[in-house]
């Protein structure tokens, strides 16, 4: 049963991933990216990493993608992108397929499909974040802080010029 659900989720993930690059309306691409992130969260859930699954939804599907859709709607982007020639698409597709084909055995060996082999509960993740990876964690939060301050400064400067 779980395996069947896993295959359905995997098919959805691949389909929505293709949708992101192949759909022509920007909003549809964004929506299929939301679906893709959702299926990724479902995959985490299959690995019993509930916390990772939830944070995946909160951070990516719930916050970042809302902002992306917000921007698409505000700028009211239309599907104006021209498709590249069939020849280029063929070459890129073949290259990607070849690469994946070579990687497939390694992926199958290293990544478990289902089951609780990844320790993904809140306690474990919290402990390793605040003990083993405390330095990278703090550096990341510092980077985000700098980015926020930078964004505020940029937004303010634009306002001054306009008035």
């Amino acid at each position: 049963m779980t395996e069947l659900l896993w295959y359905i989720t995997a098919a959805l993930a691949i389909g929505s991933g293709l949708g992101v690059v192949m759909l022509r309306m920007p909003l549809y691409s964004a929506l299929s990216l939301v679906l893709h992130l959702f299926t990724m969260a479902a995959m985490f859930a299959f690995l019993d990493a509930h916390f990772l699954a939830t944070t995946q939804i909160i951070v990516y599907a719930g916050a970042i993608m809302v902002l992306v859709i917000f921007v698409i709607m505000l700028l009211s982007l239309e599907g104006t992108e021209k498709r590249p020639s069939i020849f280029l698409i063929g070459i890129a597709g073949a290259a990607a397929f070849g690469l994946l084909y070579m990687m497939a055995p390694a992926i199958r060996r290293t990544f478990p499909m289902t089951g609780g082999s990844l320790q993904g509960d809140v306690g474990t993740i919290g402990k390793s974040l605040y003990t083993d990876y405390i330095f990278s964690f703090e550096i990341a939060s510092l980077l985000i802080m700098v980015a926020i301050v930078g964004a505020v400064v940029l937004a303010k400067r634009i306002k001054k010029n306009a008035t």
């Binding site: 939830t54 909160i58 719930g62 809302v66 809140v122």
Partner: peptide, 20 residues
């Protein structure tokens, strides 16, 4: 789930899409 109340929070953040 051991993520408990966070899951409800995640679902609340998904509910934005409907209206938008």
């Amino acid at each position: 789930l051991n993520a408990g109340v966070l899951f409800i929070f995640a679902m609340a953040s998904m509910a934005v899409y409907g209206a938008t």
